[in-house]
Amino acid sequence: MGADPRQPILRMQGVSKSYGAVQILRGIDLDVEAGQRIALIGPSGSGKTTLLRLVMTLETPEDGTIEVEGELLGLRRVGDRLVKDSGAHLRSVRGKIGMVFQHFNLFPHMSALQNIMDGPVHVRGLSKDQARERALDLLAKVGLRNKADSLPRQLSGGQQQRVAIARALAMEPKIMLFDEITSALDPELVGEVLAIVRELAHETGMTMLIVTHEMGFAREVANRVLFMEGGHIVEDGEPEQVFGNPRSDRTKAFLGAVLHR
């Protein structure tokens, strides 16, 4: 597994999801190649965030399968049936994915450093010294080396989100999910957070799925753009094409509305 260079790092097949009577995703098929940085754009309610949440196993699809490097995520094959997965196998697959949330979700009872170290020590089994050293490096990388001992509530929103990015990176995921990571920030703090992601994109070549309303950022950082609407992927292409010359009328209408406000 994972050895085949043509195998997608993430594959969604016929994935559907509804909340009650409202269908949010309608049979999504998506292959993501390693190194792709995908911006998911579209009106609210189009299913972008739900798609990320399914990949993070925060939601379970009603239908369809998700594979990471060829291995089923959240499901296990028993005979010819698929059953809900838990335990070591689920975690071995899920460990390849990391996520940064709109509302940061830092652990309020831990300092910035502890937020970053706790997973590596208790989930991945690193020694405390190793984990601390790595956490301090990551804090330096997000420009917060001097805030190691601060509690989340002592940090600005932008700083909290940078710690949250460092925390996700400390688990060394292969795929990073960014869910509207600047939507809860004051406008003057958006830049510092986007700068970190931009740097990450250019330095690491990490696979990313980015849900964002920042069209300029999407265009600049992504190397593939998906426009979603009504639970479908309506358009899928390179940033230049989707932004510059959208094929679908709905993409055109959406971009027209958000770009020319």
Binding site: M56, L58, R94, H103, F107, H122, V123
Partner: peptide, 20 residues
């Protein structure tokens, strides 16, 4: 969101309860 962060950091349920 705290439960979700624990899942995203791959904590097993018991560990998430204990630590977070």
């Amino acid at each position: 969101g705290q439960h979700e962060a624990a899942v995203a950091l791959n904590y097993p349920p018991g560990l998430a309860m204990r630590r977070i």
